[in-house]
Nucleic acid binder design. Structure first.
Lengths: 115, 115
DNA sequence: TAATATACTTAGTATTACAAGATATATGAG
DNA sequence: CTCATATATCTTGTAATACTAAGTATATTA
């Protein structure tokens, strides 16, 4: 029932969060899904069908670049994504937008004006 | 440029914020737009083309009811919206979803785990 | 009289989270 | 050795919604 709200509220956030996770080194899709789940304590349970389009978008927009890992022994092939300089700039902007929106919501919900 | 993020991030929030504003009494469209702007300190600048569909949705979903004001003197006719009991319940749920998402985002952005 | 503010309505567009289905390899249990 | 499960990626289609843009109409002010 409130799945609807949750889904909508996540719009625009996931791209920012994925970029953020890429800040401490290149990561591949499956790994991102795991870390997102752990770090958010089960709040952001990404489906692969959600994540991969996000990664393609980031790449199309020049915010991340990808590279297939060389097959080391029997390792399965993995596509590693790395944040670009432009991606870092975009992340900074997006975080600022998030903070502003978050503060705006707080002001209305709590009807208080934290500095 | 980061308009895109902002627009997306607002999804699902506006409905909650409108409901919240209706908590302290019936209000009409234009008034909601003004209060949203003031209370959020210019973060949520609703266009009328954004607000009215939200109000219709709230009404369709039984979360609010509307009533045209009687013409008092020369006053323009206004359609007042009032939150319903069901709307109050939905608001409570939505606020809970917001808090969870907000906390999840914080955990990833700050990589800290506030209690 | 004209411009601006108030007040509501509607049609169409762009974006994105997700469901569902597909493909393929690696690993562990029986 | 076989089968189930975990790992790993990709694609198509759908639903939901913020916004643009256009329209209608009245009230107020310069």
């Amino acid at each position: 029932m409130n799945d609807k709200y949750e889904k909508q509220m996540k719009k625009g956030l996931l791209e920012m969060l994925v970029l953020k996770l890429l800040c401490d080194g290149p990561k591949y899709g499956y790994q991102i899904i795991q870390e997102m789940k752990e770090k958010s304590e089960d709040t952001f349970l990404l489906k692969d069908g959600t994540l991969y389009p996000i990664l393609y978008r980031l790449e199309d927009d020049g915010l991340a670049v990808s590279e297939w890992s060389e097959a080391e022994g029997r390792q399965v092939s993995r596509k590693y994504y790395k944040i670009t300089h432009q991606g870092q700039l975009a992340l900074d902007e997006t975080e600022a937008v998030w903070r502003r929106i978050s503060r705006g919501v707080s002001r209305i919900l709590e009807d208080t004006y934290p500095q």
